[in-house]
Nucleic acid binder design. Structure first.
Lengths: 142, 142
DNA sequence: CGGTATCCGTATGGATACTG
DNA sequence: CAGTATCCATACGGATACCG
């Protein structure tokens, strides 16, 4: 799931309409979507170990899956706004911005990491299940 | 984040190309995306308590967020293929299909539920963080 | 009832170029 | 370096129709 935020570029400075509409009925579902989003998961997991600069974080995450600058920036902004990530912009040339996890973010990140680890551990069970499923469908086709 | 599967209808019987390509480099990331997907989270959480029929599940989930038949079917298929959900189609008229969670799925669902609960508990911290963030940006604008 | 097939609008998010 | 602006492909997901 994406971060569900339209880039500020596409429509002037507003968060997505969908997200805004859904915010009314069940606010914490959105928070869940933020932390479990495609890049949110990887950002939180990375920041659990140490703080990162923007490009450094991009490279780190890139080991697993390539993320565009745009999506990384969007994800970081969302997580910062929710209070999970702290952004420290140093007024130097060239610019230097450090991202770190907050105490609140750490709580989320630990659970997310646990889930991520779990998928790794259970991966072969999943693959066996998939093989069985595909085989059954193949058989049904004949 | 969606389930990341294109409907079988759109392109003949194949899973999304993106998903297929990414499957190669980091398979367990996809599993994580399946269980944390928009509807995957809600399906797993619901099935943790008891089994449901298709429409019944749709109504249950609908209390939180409306899901189309198409997306629910897609989500259930993905979770079934991964071995998290068991599908029991009874050969009766009218058709009756029960969905239940598997032991493997239960492990995932429990973690997902814990995370979902956590977002509920910490919701006011998040809202305070958001208010602070928005106020800071407002101040910077002036 | 429990789906699948098809059509289709549009938000999502990647690539690229540009700026402070 | 750390982003923002812009463009654009596409896949996400809703509506509808139909079938077993």
């Amino acid at each position: 799931m994406g971060v569900s935020e339209r880039g500020a570029a596409d429509v002037k400075g507003e968060r997505g309409r969908r997200e805004e509409a859904r915010e009314a009925m069940c606010p914490h579902r959105l928070v869940l979507e933020h932390v479990t989003s495609r890049w949110g998961v990887l950002v939180l997991d990375a920041l659990l170990d140490r703080s990162y600069r923007f490009s450094e974080l991009r490279r780190e995450i890139g080991k697993l899956s390539t993320v565009s600058e745009k999506m990384l920036a969007q994800t970081l902004q969302t997580l910062e706004r929710d209070g999970f990530v702290h952004r420290d912009a140093k007024p130097v040339i060239p610019p230097r911005v450090d991202y770190s996890i907050t105490p609140l973010g750490r709580e989320a990140a630990e659970q997310v990491r646990a889930l991520a680890r779990w998928t790794g551990v259970r991966m072969d069970d999943v693959q066996r299940a998939r093989a069985a499923y595909d085989a059954a469908r193949e058989a049904a086709r004949a």
